[in-house]
Amino acid sequence: MDAAPTSPVLADILPRLQDALKTKSFDGSLKFDCGDSGVIVLADGTATATDQATDCTLKMSPDNLVKLLKGKLNPMTALAMGKIRISGNPAVAMKLSDLLKR
Rank of each mutant, 00 (worst) to 15 (best):
T46I: 04
N89E: 09
L65P: 04
D12M: 12
S25V: 10
K70P: 02
K101L: 01
G28L: 00
P8E: 08
D51M: 03
D36P: 09
I13Q: 13
V66T: 11
K22Y: 05
F26I: 01
G38S: 01
L42F: 03
T50D: 11
R85H: 13
K95S: 03
V92A: 05
M81H: 15
A47M: 07
K24V: 00
L65K: 12
K101I: 01
Q52M: 12
R16I: 02
A78Y: 01
K101Y: 02
S97A: 13
D27R: 15
S61W: 03
M76E: 15
T23E: 12
N74F: 00
P62E: 07
P90H: 05
G38M: 00
L65G: 06
D98P: 08
G45I: 01
R16K: 14
M1A: 11
T23G: 03
A91P: 11
D98K: 15
L42Q: 11
L58Y: 06
K22N: 12
G35C: 00
P75W: 06
K72M: 10
R102Y: 04
M1Q: 13
L69K: 09
P5A: 00
D19I: 04
K101A: 02
D55F: 00
G45M: 00
P75I: 00
A11G: 11
V92E: 04
V92D: 09
L42G: 01
D27N: 14
A47S: 01
A78P: 09
P5C: 04
P5F: 00
G88S: 06
T23K: 14
T6D: 13
P5Q: 08
I86F: 09
L73M: 09
D63R: 14
S97K: 15
N64E: 12
D63S: 11
P75S: 08
T6Q: 15
A3Y: 11
D12W: 06
S37C: 09
K59L: 11
G88M: 01
L58C: 06
T50K: 09
D12A: 09
M81V: 08
C56W: 04
D33L: 02
D55A: 08
A4T: 12
M60F: 02
S7P: 05
D33S: 06
V39P: 03
S61V: 00
V39E: 05
P5M: 02
T54I: 03
L68T: 06
T57M: 06
P75Q: 09
L17W: 06
V41Y: 03
S37Q: 14
G88E: 11
